[in-house]
């Protein structure tokens, strides 16, 4: 399924979301940004939980506010701060899901719960943070949804459980019709999973790039002031002042490796890219 947020605007006091984003069919799209950047607002808009001031959101070309219950069954959801009431047990939730989603896979869901050691008879409120996170993801994947919208699905999980969940998401993506929109604070999750990544800051999308391009072509140059003056800045995306001079984010790491052999060029991870894009001066603003 293809999800499109087209020039979506949502205004709050002191904050405005202004977002255009596409999740292509068969792709995993990541949304990254620091706390309060607008990720959850964008997710809520995509799910029709808030009313927009402008823009359109479509799922396979259909306005999300006009989706029928049957069409809504194609969307699996994890919200970081919301779920079924904790007084309920997994056994209760299974009955609810069976009567809510026509394609709910009871046996597969129960097997996954056993695999992740989730007790069926214990109230969810007594679960650890990690157990709650696992349950949310398992629920979203339990009824053959074609699009998963996952807001911080791996938050609170230990490394092993995180890998297990990510493996499940990869398995889910083996069906080429499926798509995922995911946000996470853990950049390694996104690096290993996403086909493309949107970076959001202060409500605006500041970068959209394919993940392999981000990881292969982007890099960080560490230069002195003198080196900076002589540098060709055509491929510099962002600049941050440092004690030794500048850290520069480039979208063409190889160009600088070949043409400036005396400059230190480091491979950049998503964390570094976020840091440099957000706390540095961006290309358009540089003098």
């Amino acid at each position: 399924m293809k999800l499109e947020l087209n020039q979506v605007v949502k205004k709050y006091d002191g904050f405005q979301l202004d977002c255009t984003l596409t999740v292509e069919e068969g792709c995993v799209t990541g949304l990254i940004g620091r706390n309060g950047a607008g990720k959850s607002t964008a997710f809520k808009a995509a799910l029709g939980l808030i009313r927009m001031n402008a823009g359109t959101i479509t799922l396979d070309g259909k306005d999300i506010t006009k989706l029928s219950p049957k069409e809504k069954e194609n969307v699996g959801v994890v919200l970081s701060d919301s779920g079924f009431n904790g007084i309920l047990t997994i056994k209760d939730i299974i009955v609810i899901m069976k009567n809510t989603y026509r394609k709910f896979q009871k046996e597969a869901f129960e097997n996954h719960c056993k695999q992740f050691s989730l007790p069926l008879n214990k109230p969810v409120k007594e679960f650890s943070t990690g157990m709650k996170a696992k349950l949310k993801v398992l629920l979203a994947m339990s009824y053959e949804a074609k699009l998963l919208i996952l807001d911080e699905p791996t938050a609170g999980l230990d490394v092993v459980a995180r890998d297990e969940i990510l493996d499940m998401l990869r398995e889910y993506m083996e069906n080429e019709e499926n798509s995922i929109l995911i946000s996470s604070h853990i950049s390694s999750d996104l690096e290993g999973l996403c086909d493309d990544v949107y970076m959001i800051d202060n409500g605006k999308i500041v970068l959209h790039e394919e993940t392999n391009v981000l990881l292969d072509a982007y890099g960080v140059l560490k230069v002195t002031k003198e080196q900076y003056e002589k540098l060709d800045k055509s491929y510099i995306v962002s600049r941050k002042k440092e004690s030794y001079g500048y850290s520069l984010l480039t979208s063409e790491k190889q160009y600088y490796v070949e043409n400036y052999p005396d400059i230190t060029v480091e491979k950049s991870g998503i964390d570094q890219i976020i840091t440099l894009l957000i706390s540095g001066t961006r290309e358009g603003d540089m003098v």
């Binding site: 809520k44 799910l47 029709g48 939980l49 219950p69 049957k70 069409e71 809504k72 069954e73 969307v75 959801v77 919200l79 701060d81 919301s82 779920g83 079924f84 009431n85 904790g86 007084i87 809510t100 989603y101």
Partner: peptide
């Protein structure tokens, strides 16, 4: 009140029931 506890309404509104339902 149980639905509203811990912001649970947001999740319930993503279920395929609809607001009027």
């Amino acid at each position: 009140a149980y639905d509203m506890m811990d912001n649970g309404m947001a999740y319930l509104m993503t279920l395929p029931a609809g607001r009027k339902s």
